[in-house]
């Protein structure tokens, strides 16, 4: 005969409930570890709260990627890309042709021998079509860190911008400062006569750049062309 108590406690049930307890405990411990490793940069009690949910949601990621695609349009416009060529010859004009005169980058990005940038480019734009545009520090990136834009996909360029070994050693803050207030960057929006401006205003560009960073600095998917 099986008593009522025995019915409530079927053979092996005590052993099984212990096993369930161990399984569930292991899962909880595993999830906690995953969370901690994913958010190890967080610290203090606020960090603990953030452990409970991912720092950037899927929606953040989408916003960030979309913002970078706007940033990318500007970076690939002639006013930015012409001085970030894939080779050692700067580009010119709205059609990004090779710089006439056969100018080359040189070790520090300011040209070579008799063909240094500042030999023709003054501190300001000169009036008239086809006159040299100007800026007090006209130059390309140096030879040891070329910071190439030309030919990069959005995915590649976003990763490059975030990589200190390929972005001029800049932190995120330095990157934001660079696009916000560097006079050479700003000069893209005051081009010499006959040259187009980048497709976004500088204000909109900086907004999109900040949005990209704020929402996780996520690089667009590799298939984004």
């Amino acid at each position: 005969m099986i008593s009522l108590n025995d019915k409530k406690r079927l053979p092996g049930s005590s052993h099984r409930s212990k096993r369930y307890y161990y399984v569930i405990s292991s899962i909880v411990a595993f999830l906690a570890l995953v969370n901690m490793s994913a958010f190890k940069s967080e610290s203090g009690s606020a960090g603990f709260v953030k452990l409970l949910k991912p720092r950037f949601s899927k929606q953040d990621s989408m916003i960030s990627k979309r913002a970078f695609l706007q940033v990318y349009k500007v970076l690939m416009s002639p006013r930015c890309m012409n001085c970030h060529p894939s080779g050692d010859i700067p580009l010119q004009g709205d059609d990004s042709h090779f710089h006439l005169q056969g100018v080359k980058r040189g070790p520090d990005g300011t040209g070579l021998y008799a063909l240094k940038c500042g030999n023709c480019h003054q501190s300001h734009n000169l009036p008239g079509l086809h006159m040299p545009p100007g800026n007090p520090k006209w130059h390309l990136p140096p030879a040891n860190m070329k910071m190439v834009f030309q030919g990069r996909t959005p995915h590649q360029l976003a990763l490059q911008l975030l990589d200190k070994k390929r972005n001029g050693g800049r932190s995120i803050k330095a990157l934001v400062d660079h696009v916000t207030s560097d006079t050479l960057v700003l000069s893209g929006w005051t081009p010499a006569e006959g040259l187009s401006k980048p497709p976004l205003t500088h204000k909109a560009f900086v907004n999109e750049f900040n949005k990209w960073i704020k929402h996780g600095a996520i690089s667009p998917d590799p298939e984004n062309k």
Partner: peptide
């Protein structure tokens, strides 16, 4: 007269500047 040909090159503090566009 637009820094394209180099005929006007002089030295300014040792650099080969185009004198036609240098104020």
């Amino acid at each position: 007269g637009m820094a394209q040909c180099g005929a006007c090159t002089i030295h300014l503090d040792g650099e080969a500047v185009r004198s036609c566009v240098t104020p």
